[in-house]
Design a protein around this nucleic acid. Structure first.
Length: 892
RNA sequence: GGGCGGUUAGCUCAGUUGGUUAGAGCAUCUGACUUACAUUCAGAGGGUCAGGGGUUCGAGUCCUCUACCGCCCACCA
């Protein structure tokens, strides 16, 4: 490519599409076992097949892609395992909505036909998010893309179920679930959002058996559940009810005898301090019932209609029944009072019907035995959370873990691998359930071939928790599977949002330890939530979505990625607005233009980027020293997951050091021989070369594009930047050059400052006289000062007797600057300004002197700090004296 | 009720183990077509680091209390 072929405008969209297709085609993302290389593995948190890429994904996947690209360039065999999750309920709902448009319910189609519809939908739309991830630049090994309902993966799920069942860790039991009586389906907790609802609190008297006119009064929001009461509970510490515990009360209306029990669950402050216990219709009462071995009486069926056990109210709707009961209680004089009561009630997220806690038979996993090793793995540091604070959250949850209800009353998912032996009428026989990986031929207990499979499917997370190893075709015993697992497992880093710490992360740790005997990953990086600029979570229903693809379309994936990472502090939520992406867009533009300038300006004689040292100019040594430091800082920041810090270091280096000072300084023509010019061009290309490598994990596209141009020009061997080595030990550390350049920069700034003060136009080029005890540094860089401060000439003196007439003075520690002017300078104004400046310095001097004269400081502070403070004081004093002299000169 | 996070410039936020005169981006103001870039360049203004108390030679940073905002968990029948 010749120099003139570099377009003046960077077209992110075209460049990104072209490069991505090339990368993928060449297989640069692929990672196969390679014993010579150390593996680095990340499993992508599988996005839902229903998903479209939102900002949360963009953030999450950018972090992962940074880690993957960074480690790939560190010479590791970096594998990013992609895939999607079948997301049981969410996906089923999508398809149910779709067929609802044709007026169909899933029951109309039947299980098999409905599932065909879901698969059809999955084939058609399930890969949307994968395509979007590619737009973002995600460098996954797409050949390995897995789906949680792939045949092999499903085998792993069944294997795990059978394994846990045989180990005695899976059991069937009664459990209260969220049930929507209208949709006739179970709902997950997050699908039954609590809404503040105005209700009533009914105070009801329960007569005490064998004692006339003696009652205990309970308060309830749902009087209809009185029919299912099996106890009344009070707090054991409640003095008011001490004598009541152990007595029996007569349940109003139906007259059943139930005990009064004591349980800590009861809050003595609320209501009357006595609670009716309905184990079959309230999750808390259910737990109380378990503790006290109470009967569970179901008085309401799955449609919200009262059952046989509701006695006279049988057949009534639940709310009708509530009215009827309240009337009857009134009639019997048992209703004490009714209070208005605001409380939180679960509502169906689809039809807004009030959720009914419903007792039903479900499958469970016993969690305590699985949790123990998972607690240990975190406690002993084999797994580390970043930020650290999540460790406590994790341990707290794990130590109080409840058994996991894994059955779901939906169709889309892994069907529970349990079969029941049934007779000709379809009724269960006495044989125990048959738990097998594959459909059994006949009942192993009686030989009956009449078997039916459990209707329910498994919770989505029951497949997700196997992701770090099931994606490698575990538990297949094939040789390559075992070798792959041995090589890539455990994975290195898991990047995810804290929302799924319990759902997914904790369970993966348990599954990894249980089935692989090893942790599934060593680091967990938990990032914040993406919010809009008013702090609300981004969601479709709020209409506050910023679509990452729109940003990519407008500004490019690099701009999106860099902006996101740059503004997101470790583990903090990020508040987004469209304008925040301009940061990355502008930076992309800056990188492009600087590169274009460097590349188009290269002399034909420049054949490589290795300068012939020693470098003569201060600015050369300076920028190379900064580059050296940058590499160290970026490396450290990324390895500590401080992604924003690394991004900001890169930004600051490139823009405010390299472009603002170094590139500008290389434009100077005066006083440079050809050797110096050529060397500077090499330094420019060398810094650019290393910079694009450093930024590649953040901005994969523009860095590759520039690298390709550099490669064409210099003939580098690396085919693609993404497989080149990450810079290490580049540049040259030179502290004295850094210090000297700081002096030069502050001289230039001082002069620019003085110019702005008096409104000097950029086209005007005055002369400057610099006075300093140490003229060496200034003399070396006289051309830099002249050029960058836009001066006609710079004179440097060690000492002067009298300040130049018609001049404007400025002072830095160790240096006086006189801007020589023909025009008039307002002397009074000048004196005022300088005096003010001098006063500020005086304050600082006083502060420093007080500090240094404090004996405690001298004796207790580290030597280096004392020394630094002392020399700082010297500088301040020098500036103070010089200002004094300048002011005196003006007055004279 | 329990736990966690936040409170730093007009806005959005950085600030590693306590150590120069607390930084950036945006916004505002002034000036500039200086031949890579106006998605730019030069410059300016703007902060008692939420408040009280403590530890320390030294606190935005550590401890403690308070206030407000937000999140998570458990939720009062």
């Amino acid at each position: 490519m010749s120099n003139t072929d570099i377009p003046s405008q960077y077209r992110a969209r075209d460049v990104e599409d072209r490069l991505y297709q090339w990368w993928e085609k060449e297989g640069f993302f692929n990672a196969d076992r390679d014993e010579k290389k150390e593996p680095y593995t990340i499993v992508i948190p599988p996005p839902n097949v229903t998903g479209i890429l939102h900002m949360g994904h963009a953030l999450n996947d950018t972090y992962q892609d940074i880690l993957i690209r960074y480690n790939r360039m560190k010479g590791k065999n970096a594998l990013w395992m992609p895939g999607t999750d079948h997301a049981g309920i969410a996906t089923q709902n999508v398809v149910e909505r779709k067929i609802a448009k044709q007026g169909l319910r899933r029951q109309d189609l039947g299980r098999e036909k409905f599932l065909e519809e879901v698969w059809k939908w999955k084939e058609e739309y399930g890969s949307t998010i994968i395509r979007q991830l590619k737009r973002l630049g995600a460098s996954c090994d797409w050949r390995r893309t897995r789906f949680t309902m792939d045949e092999e993966y499903s085998k792993a799920v069944r294997y795990v179920f059978v394994h846990l069942y045989k180990k005695g860790l899976i059991y069937q039991g009664n459990y209260i679930i969220n049930w929507c009586p209208r949709c006739h389906t179970a709902l997950a907790d997050e699908e039954a959002p609590k809404k503040e609802t105005q209700g009533r609190l009914y105070y009801v008297k329960y007569p005490i058996e064998g004692e006339d006119d003696s009652y205990i009064t309970v308060a309830t929001t749902r009087p209809e559940t009185i029919l299912g009461d099996t106890a009344v509970a009070v707090n054991p510490k409640d003095e008011r009810y001490k004598g009541f515990v152990g007595k029996t009360v007569i349940l109003p209306i139906i007259g059943r005898r139930i005990p009064i029990i004591a349980d800590d669950y009861v809050d003595p402050e609320f209501g009357t301090g006595a609670v009716k216990i309905t184990p079959a219709h309230d999750p808390n009462d259910f737990l109380v019932g378990k503790r006290h071995e109470l009967e569970e009486i179901v008085v309401m069926d799955s449609t919200g209609v009262m059952t046989e056990d509701a006695g006279p109210y049988k057949g009534m709707d639940r709310f009708e029944c509530r009215k009827a009961i309240v009337d009857d209680l009134k009639k019997q004089g048992l209703l004490v009072k009714i209070e208005e009561h605001l409380h939180n009630v679960g509502h169906c997220y689809r039809c807004d019907t009030v959720i009914e806690p419903y007792l039903s038979r479900q499958w469970f996993v016993k969690m305590k035995p699985l949790a123990e090793p998972a607690i240990k793995a975190v406690k002993d540091g084999r797994i580390r959370f970043t930020p650290r604070r999540w460790t406590k959250v994790y341990l707290n949850w794990m130590e109080n873990i409840q058994d996991w209800c894994i059955s779901r009353q939906i169709w889309w998912g892994h069907r529970i691998p349990v079969w029941y032996c049934v007779n000709e009428q379809g009724e269960r026989t006495d044989c125990p359930p048959i738990v097998e990986m594959e459909t059994p031929e006949a009942c192993p207990h009686c030989g009956n071939k009449n078997l039916v499979q459990d209707e329910d499917v498994l919770d989505t997370w029951f497949s997700s928790w196997l992701w770090p190893f099931a994606t490698f075709y575990w538990p297949s015993q094939e040789d390559w599977v075992k070798k792959d697992l041995e090589y890539f497992y455990p994975t290195n880093t898991l990047v995810t949002a804290p929302e799924i710490l319990f759902f997914w992360v904790a369970r993966m740790i348990m599954a990894g330890l249980e089935f692989m005997g090893e942790i599934p990953f060593s680091d967990v990086y938990l990032h914040g939530t993406v919010r809009d600029d008013t702090g609300r979570k981004m969601s479709k229903s709020l209409g506050n979505i910023i679509d990452p693809l729109e940003i990519i379309e407008e500004m490019g994936a690099d701009a999106l990625r860099f902006s996101l990472i740059s503004i997101t502090a470790v583990g903090q939520d990020v508040y987004l607005s469209r304008s925040k992406f301009e940061l990355g867009r502008n930076f992309t533009n800056k990188i492009w233009n600087a590169s274009r300038y460097i590349l188009t300006g290269l002399n034909e004689e420049v054949e490589d980027i290795v300068w012939e040292g020693p470098l003569l100019l201060l600015e050369d040594r300076w920028i190379l020293s900064l580059l050296h430091r940058l590499v160290k800082d970026v490396d450290r920041a990324i390895s500590q997951f401080r992604f924003n810090e690394a991004a900001n270091r890169l930004y600051d280096f490139f823009w405010h050091n390299f472009c603002d000072w170094y590139i500008e300084a290389t434009k100077i023509k005066d006083g440079k021989n050809k050797e110096v010019v050529l060397n500077q061009q090499k330094v420019l290309a060398y810094v650019l070369y290393n910079f694009v490598h450093l930024i590649h994990p953040y901005m994969p596209f523009i860095s590759e594009e520039i690298y390709q141009i550099l490669k064409d020009r210099f003939g580098f061997e690396g085919e693609t930047i993404m497989l080149n080595l990450y810079p290490q030990e580049v540049g040259i550390e030179d502290i004295s050059a850094e210090e000297a350049m700081e002096t030069i920069k502050s001289v230039v700034s001082l002069i620019r400052n003085m110019r702005a003060d008096i409104g000097l136009k950029p086209s005007e080029r005055p002369e400057v006289l610099l006075v300093s005890g140490n003229v060496q540094v200034l003399k070396e860089s006289v051309e830099v000062i002249k050029f960058l401060a836009r001066l006609s000439d710079v004179r440097i003196e060690q000492k002067i007797d009298k300040r130049p007439e018609k001049s404007l003075a400025g002072v830095l520690p160790g240096i006086e600057a006189y801007l020589l002017l023909e025009g008039l300078v307002n002397i009074d104004e000048e004196i005022k300004k300088l005096k003010k400046k001098r006063q500020e310095i005086e304050k600082l001097i006083n502060k420093k002197e007080a500090l240094l004269s404090n004996e405690n400081f001298a004796s207790k502070a580290p030597k280096a700090v004392v020394e630094a403070e002392t020399s700082k004081l010297e500088e301040l004093k020098d500036a103070y004296d010089r200002l004094g002299a300048v002011i005196d000169g003006l007055k004279a």
